[in-house]
Simulated scan of single mutants.
Amino acid sequence: MAPDHRDASAASPAAASSSRTVLIWDWPVRLFHWLTVALVAAAYVTVRLNWIDWHVRIGEALLVLVVFRLLWGLLGSQTARFTSFVAAPAAALRHLRAVARREPDMQAGHNPAGGWMVLLLLALLAAETLTGLYVYNDVADEGPLSEVVPAVVSNTITALHSILWDALAVAIALHVCAVALYAFVWGQNLVRPMLDGHKSLPAHVREPRRAPLWLAIVLLAVAAGGVTLLASVL
């Protein structure tokens, strides 16, 4: 099914007046979201306390989650797929204008603006964890690349790891501010659906298709195996 990024104003008032509760976020998406929140917080605490071994394990777990989310974005449930929420920048601007006009929320899944934030956060998490694996292996002299990468490249990767952490912190702050803005200014609660998976939508909006749970388990195992191999290389 092709993604529908039309403005909320495209639907008739009569259609919008009748609503029903539908499941828009499956267990894999919700677990990924909240585990990522917990692990990012744990990564900050462990690096501040200089618990490097724990920090590295947390970084590896985060990378497993990111790889899983990328795979789930290709093969998973409808609302998790990138094809359902990655829109053109113009569509994101149209969405923000519609929200500012306080038009009804009829988006099943990430809205066009939120979709870009998802991509940004995933990119920053992937880059931060990958550079972190290299930095740890370079310091511990464990990874094969630590012996062949020139010192200038190694130093650049180490500096990039710190810069990416700051960029990730800024992106997370923007994300939290946006969620608060939707809730307190425009009356759209984006947190509750990420907790219980459900959202009230107009009756004419189809319930998103869900992928089987066994597929999520298989993809998580693939992600864990891939990260384990990658950690031994970096």
Rank of each mutant, 00 (worst) to 15 (best):
F68V: 00
A126Q: 02
R210G: 03
A90E: 09
R206M: 07
A14S: 13
A180M: 11
I58W: 06
D7E: 14
S19E: 15
V64L: 06
G226M: 03
A87Y: 04
L145A: 10
L65I: 07
L213E: 09
F82N: 00
V148H: 02
T21H: 10
V152C: 02
A98N: 10
A8K: 05
T36Q: 13
V218K: 03
R97V: 11
D26H: 01
H55G: 12
D26S: 04
H204M: 09
A43K: 06
R210H: 13
P104C: 09
R20P: 08
T79E: 03
A14R: 11
A15P: 00
A41V: 14
S12V: 05
L35S: 15
L39W: 11
V99Q: 02
A38S: 11
R97M: 08
L121Q: 05
A14M: 07
Q188P: 04
A169C: 13
P112M: 07
A167C: 10
W25M: 06
V66Q: 01
G225R: 07
L31M: 15
V139N: 08
A41W: 07
A88R: 13
V152S: 12
V29F: 08
V29A: 15
A183C: 07
A123N: 00
A61E: 08
S12L: 10
Y134D: 06
V45M: 11
H55F: 12
T131S: 15
S146P: 01
V179I: 14
T79M: 04
L120Y: 06
I24W: 03
W54N: 13
A180P: 06
E128M: 12
V86D: 00
V227N: 00
N111Q: 10
V66S: 02
E103Y: 01
V185A: 12
